[in-house]
Structure formats: C-alpha cells, structure tokens
Deep mutational scan, measured.
Amino acid sequence: PDLGLTQLFADPNLIENLKKNPKTSEMMKDPQLVAKLIGYKQNPQAIGQDLFTDPRLMTIMATLMGVDL
C-alpha cells in the first residue's frame, strides 16, 4: 500500500502550492528536489527510500498533510 501518498502527490498544483508555502518555498528553488517531487506523481513508492536520505521530504510531507512540525 502507498499509505495515501498517491493522493498527496497527485495534486496538479503540488509544486506551485509548495512554492507559495513559507515552510517549503526555499526548498522549491532546488531543481533536483522539484524533479523528485514530479517523479513521485508517477511512482509514489519511490519516496519511501528518499525519506531516509533527504530530510526536506519529511517537511514537505508534513506540509502536504497539514501537520505543523
């Protein structure tokens, strides 16, 4: 199971919303991170391994779920 990750990354406004959010806007200036996020739309399971190697993803996930870290 993808634990709902498919829906989190399926939002067509995902990148724009993250660019507008004060907690994630600075991160979204990294083209490699943006490319990763776009890739998760097609393969949400890929985030599982990346969560352990890129701490920014935890902040992004929390933001998408509405959790304040």
Rank of each mutant, 00 (worst) to 15 (best):
P1L: 12
P1C: 09
P1D: 10
P1W: 02
D2M: 15
D2F: 08
D2I: 15
D2K: 03
L3S: 14
L3M: 14
L3C: 10
L3F: 14
G4Y: 15
G4P: 15
G4N: 15
G4D: 15
L5V: 13
L5F: 14
T6G: 14
T6S: 10
T6I: 13
T6R: 09
T6N: 12
T6Y: 09
Q7N: 12
F9N: 02
D11I: 04
D11V: 03
N13W: 07
N13Y: 13
N13T: 10
L14E: 01
L14W: 11
I15D: 00
I15S: 01
I15W: 04
I15P: 01
E16P: 06
E16G: 06
E16I: 06
N17R: 10
N17F: 15
L18W: 02
K19V: 10
K19T: 14
K19Q: 15
K20T: 13
K20D: 10
N21R: 03
N21C: 04
K23H: 13
K23A: 12
K23F: 07
K23W: 06
T24W: 03
S25P: 00
S25E: 13
S25C: 08
S25L: 10
M28G: 01
M28E: 00
M28P: 00
K29L: 08
K29T: 12
D30S: 03
P31M: 07
P31K: 12
P31E: 13
Q32N: 11
Q32M: 14
Q32G: 13
L33I: 07
L33P: 00
A35D: 13
A35N: 08
A35Q: 13
A35M: 10
K36A: 08
K36G: 02
L37Q: 00
L37K: 00
L37F: 03
G39M: 14
Y40T: 02
Y40E: 01
P44S: 05
P44D: 04
P44L: 08
P44H: 09
P44F: 06
P44I: 09
Q45K: 03
A46P: 06
A46D: 12
I47N: 07
G48T: 15
Q49K: 11
D50S: 04
D50A: 06
D50K: 02
L51F: 09
L51E: 05
F52Y: 14
F52V: 15
T53W: 10
D54M: 01
D54A: 00
D54Q: 01
D54C: 02
P55R: 05
P55D: 07
P55N: 13
P55M: 05
R56I: 06
L57W: 08
L57K: 00
L57V: 15
L57Q: 01
M58Y: 12
M58K: 11
M58G: 06
M58W: 13
M58R: 10
T59F: 11
T59Q: 10
T59C: 06
T59K: 09
T59H: 07
I60L: 06
I60G: 00
A62V: 10
A62I: 11
T63E: 07
T63M: 07
L64D: 00
L64Q: 03
M65G: 09
V67P: 15
V67Q: 12
V67F: 13
V67D: 15
V67R: 00
D68Y: 01
D68C: 04
L69Y: 02
L69N: 15
